[in-house]
Computed example of a mutant assay.
Amino acid sequence: MSVGLVALFDDIATLAKAAAASIDDVAGQAAKASTKAAGVVIDDTAVTPRYLTEFSPSRELPVVGKIALGSLKNKLLFLLPAALALSFLLPQAITPLLMIGGAYLCYEGAEKVYEALFPHDAHAHEAGLETVALDARSFEDEKIASAIKTDFILSAEIMAITLAAIPGGSIVNQAIILAVVGTGITAAVYGVVALIVKADDLGVALARLSPASRAAAPLRATGRAIVHAMPYLLGALSTIGTAAMIWVGGGIILHGLEAYGLGWPAHALHDAGAAVARAVPYGSALIAWLVEAAGAGVAGLAIGLLAIPLTGRVLSPLWRQIKSLTRQVLLRNRA
């Protein structure tokens, strides 16, 4: 009996070691895959605050929480199983779906540029669009739905990059790595977003510290500096977020075209970046990236501007019909 018990403990220890090794392997692969998606993660962090600029301070964190929950659902409930299914059953569909998402990002970014240049025409275009949410009862609902929709595209890119970075293995391991990366990135992105949007409240709290204490003087000065800087920071993040959507969307489409034998635009941008980088003595890698990002941004802006009339005249009326039919079906089911 004692020998059998010792053998059982030995087997359990062996299994525990194997499980620990497997966990370490998953953690290592998840960390490597996360670094591959770092660029899109930065873009996601820059894009999100632009949806929070019109809310009262009391609603900022609840709205961030709702968007973060929607982002987590996007990754874990929709994109993770879809990515695994497509990679095994229909891998050729991944590229065109990503390109459609890239076109949407281009449209969203170009719409903001159009609004800045031609505000009257942009407002007329926006007034004619159908709302995103199926049942948007308030301005907050609509903003959250728009943010989650944009997050879906960026999350799809993150999950696709992560899946491509995972070495071949079991579908269970791939699912675990995707879930770990998706959860970690969501927590990181929306944690930073929450800090950004509440930084002004921290500044106000510091600025109101009692002046009686000499030690509080530097903190009060820091608080005032934060309060004065936040409008400029949020404005800069809004601009960066718009630019990020345009160049990420343009880059997705240009790289997608390579898969269909139309690689010359991406190759031309790469060659231009390399040529400019060779002409400067310092920061050649950064210069090359800036040239390629600018080229992708130009392409993305052109695609987005073309998508504006297409959205207003074709896609929005089509979405209006779909929503109407969906509401009718829901009403029938409730009856």
Rank of each mutant, 00 (worst) to 15 (best):
W289L: 14
G102W: 04
I42T: 10
A18I: 13
A335Q: 14
I176K: 03
V227W: 05
R220W: 06
A175T: 01
L98T: 01
P62T: 05
G168Y: 07
G4L: 14
G312N: 05
L318I: 13
A127S: 10
C106D: 09
L233R: 03
D11L: 14
E108V: 15
W319Q: 15
Y190K: 00
E108T: 15
R137D: 12
I23P: 05
L77K: 04
K73H: 02
A21K: 14
Y232L: 10
A164D: 13
A205P: 01
D200C: 07
M245L: 14
R59P: 06
R327S: 08
A294M: 07
V280F: 15
A127L: 06
V197G: 00
L234E: 00
L90T: 14
K17A: 15
Y260M: 04
T131K: 15
A187K: 01
A16Y: 07
Y51Q: 00
A225T: 09
A188E: 09
L84G: 03
G191L: 00
M159N: 04
S238A: 05
W289M: 14
D44I: 01
L105F: 06
T95S: 07
G250R: 08
G273M: 01
L61W: 00
A179G: 02
L306Y: 06
A46K: 03
R327M: 05
V227L: 11
A307E: 06
M99V: 06
A179T: 04
P49L: 05
E60K: 11
Y114N: 09
S213D: 12
T45D: 05
T35K: 13
A335M: 14
F9N: 10
A299D: 04
P96M: 08
P62M: 01
D10T: 12
G101L: 06
G169Q: 01
E142S: 02
L134M: 09
D25W: 07
P317D: 04
I100C: 09
L262Y: 10
L325P: 15
R278Y: 07
D43H: 07
L76Y: 04
A164G: 13
L219D: 06
L209E: 01
Y114G: 04
V276Y: 07
D43I: 10
G312R: 07
T95P: 04
I67E: 00
E130R: 09
A307H: 07
A294H: 03
I240P: 03
A46P: 07
I171A: 15
S71E: 02
I240L: 11
N333W: 14
V132S: 11
G4F: 07
P317C: 03
L84T: 05
L117W: 10
A85D: 08
P265T: 02
P231S: 05
Y282V: 12
G65Q: 03
D11M: 08
W264Q: 13
V193L: 00
I240S: 05
